[in-house]
């Protein structure tokens, strides 16, 4: 007994420690890469690590962060939401249009419409049994069409003059802009919801195995429906805040935003196959995209084609690192 214990103990505990370390690196992979990139950039560019520049990056990233929170929930269930860019644009146009009736209307109208679009898509996925990719692709096209239809083919831009809404978009508290504060508060709520609540556990379980979840008596369809509603609300809210920020509901915003949001979520360590996800990772993914863009601008002499190569290459490297780490953990 005494002979076995010491030999078994260290062996299993060192293996456990190694697994734990790799696990930590994987779930904190994106934050770690983010820190490294920020440090390197700070030493390379004198104008990078300045208060103005860092708050700029935060503000620029806050809208994508809000969209990314909803997207994380959807992807954890094993789904995908391609409609967020269009819903983002619709949210902005509706907010600007409704701002003539005051700031409450400007926030409520987009949220209700966003929830409704999410509910329709969610119902088709959950009860219609259709592929999320196709359902939300249809959503992407149809909602963009609605945006163009209500703006005269994209030629009218409703403007925001409501002072409260302008403060929400452009003002701040203690030097931090409201969109950033709202994004971070939603992130904290999201983390609590995903990791500490029954609903969140249901979301993870459905993504892990739908059949097992059904057998366990989880309301699978309801869970699936709810994540699309959440995603629709988040995208519309981000759009409304962006409209407040730019003082106008520009119809052409958000084109391709779904891909940025998905990239950020995946960089953050959430598995596209579902069942595992991290909102802190999503935050890091969003910030990474913002920082990379900022660094490209700091260089200031790259042509648009080189910029694309750099950001594409970076995304590839991050995904490769993620994959290698998760493979090690499985072994």
């Amino acid at each position: 007994m005494t002979a076995i214990e010491p030999s078994a103990g260290p062996a299993s505990s060192s293996q456990l420690a190694r697994e734990r370390a790799v696990g930590a690196v994987q779930s904190f992979g994106a934050p770690i890469v983010l820190v490294i990139v920020v440090i390197v950039a700070s030493f390379s560019f004198p104008t990078f690590f300045t208060a103005t520049n860092l708050t700029n990056i935060l503000l620029q990233s806050s809208f994508l962060l809000i969209v990314g929170i909803g997207m994380t929930f959807v992807i954890v269930t094993g789904g995908i939401d391609l409609s967020v860019g269009s819903v983002f644009a619709l949210g902005g146009v509706l907010a600007a249009y409704a701002s003539q009736w005051g700031w409450v209307a400007a926030l409520v109208v987009p949220l209700v419409v966003g929830a409704l679009i999410g509910a329709i898509q969610g119902a088709l996925v959950a009860w219609g049994g259709m592929a999320p990719f196709i359902v939300t692709l249809a959503g992407l096209l149809a909602v963009r069409g609605i945006v163009l239809a209500i703006t005269n083919g994209g030629s009218t831009t409703p403007l925001i003059t409501d002072p409260v809404l302008k403060v929400i978009g452009q003002g701040g508290l203690a030097g931090i802009e409201w969109p950033v504060i709202i994004g971070l508060v939603l992130l904290v709520i999201g983390i609590v919801l995903l990791t500490r609540s029954r609903t969140g556990q249901g979301v993870v379980a459905v993504g892990g195995s739908e059949n097992a979840s059904t057998l366990m008596g989880l309301p699978v369809a309801r869970v699936k429906m709810s994540v699309y509603v959440l995603s629709g609300i988040m995208a519309a809210l981000a759009g409304a805040l962006n409209a407040a920020y730019t003082s106008s509901g520009v119809p052409v915003v958000g084109v391709g935003m779904e891909l940025s949001a998905i990239s950020a979520v995946v960089i953050g360590g959430t598995l596209l196959t579902g069942g595992k996800g991290s909102l802190i990772g999503t935050l890091a993914g969003v910030l990474l995209l913002g920082v990379i863009q900022n660094i490209i601008n700091q260089v200031g002499s790259l042509t648009s084609s080189v910029q694309s190569i750099v950001s594409g290459g970076f995304l590839a490297v991050v995904v490769i690192i993620q994959t290698v780490l998760s493979r090690q953990q499985r072994l």
């Binding site: 700029n56 052409v252 913002g290």
Partner: peptide, 21 residues
């Protein structure tokens, strides 16, 4: 020089980046 690549939000951040530089 920066390039917004047809994205409005990127043009806003590009200009802010230029100013902070």
């Amino acid at each position: 020089s920066t390039n917004a690549q047809s994205t409005l939000s990127k043009q806003i951040s590009d200009i802010q980046d230029l100013i902070s530089q």
